[in-house]
């Protein structure tokens, strides 16, 4: 698990502290050059879109590690502890299934994209690479889901929420 958490953390560092700040810089430069010097950067928007996509897909595993989900929890106190435990396991099972499907399809997509030399219009970023990034995010999530699913320990904490993952880093404001 520890290694997986490092992987998740590493991808998240790329997402939050590399991709997002890069978007900030690229667009700030683009707008400044456009407004003051009438010479916008042609590929700025495209790069920002690619970075945004990377930022989102690379943060996937960490969003599962930190339980960052929108959910309705009005049944939390109605369901018994065993039922809560099953719901949590079901979550990881579904996440695992979806991620495995995503990885499989990314492979198929990439093959097609390489065949037709699909790439972003200005910067020629191969679309297959971007599918690779999605597969990476899905793979990290799938691995975490698998470990969590097979965990012999109870996953539900006393308050009915899911217990934190062992050894996860928690540096974010509540």
């Amino acid at each position: 698990m520890k290694a997986l958490l490092y992987l998740s953390r590493g991808l998240f560092v790329l997402s939050a502290w590399v991709c997002l700040p890069s978007i900030l810089v690229v667009l700030a430069c683009d707008v400044t050059l456009r407004y003051f010097f009438d010479s916008p950067i042609r590929w700025a928007q495209e790069l920002a879109e690619v970075l945004l996509f990377l930022s989102v897909v690379l943060a996937l595993p960490e969003s599962f590690v930190r339980h960052a989900h929108v959910k309705a929890d009005f049944l939390k106190n109605v369901l018994g502890r065993a039922a809560r435990e099953s719901v949590i396991r079901l979550k990881w099972a579904l996440a695992l299934a979806i991620c495995v499907l995503i990885i499989r399809q990314c492979w198929a997509d990439a093959e097609y994209m390489l065949l037709i030399q699909d790439s972003t219009p200005e910067l020629y970023v191969p679309m297959a690479w971007l599918r690779g990034a999605l597969a990476l995010g899905a793979a990290g999530t799938a691995a975490i889901a698998l470990v969590r699913l097979l965990s012999p320990r109870r996953l539900v904490a006393a308050d009915g929420e899911e217990a934190p993952l062992d050894g996860r880093f928690d540096g974010v404001e509540p």
């Binding site: 456009r34 009438d38 010479s39 916008p40 042609r42 700025a44 928007q45 495209e46 219009p121 200005e122």
Partner: peptide, 26 residues
């Protein structure tokens, strides 16, 4: 000349540029 013109990208962007305007992508 010098006008900022929104263009969809690709060849159209280049046309705008060659006509002396400044292409803007959005």
């Amino acid at each position: 000349k010098g006008l900022k013109i929104r263009a969809a990208g690709g060849g159209i962007t280049e046309i705008v540029e060659r006509l002396g305007a400044v292409p803007v992508t959005m």
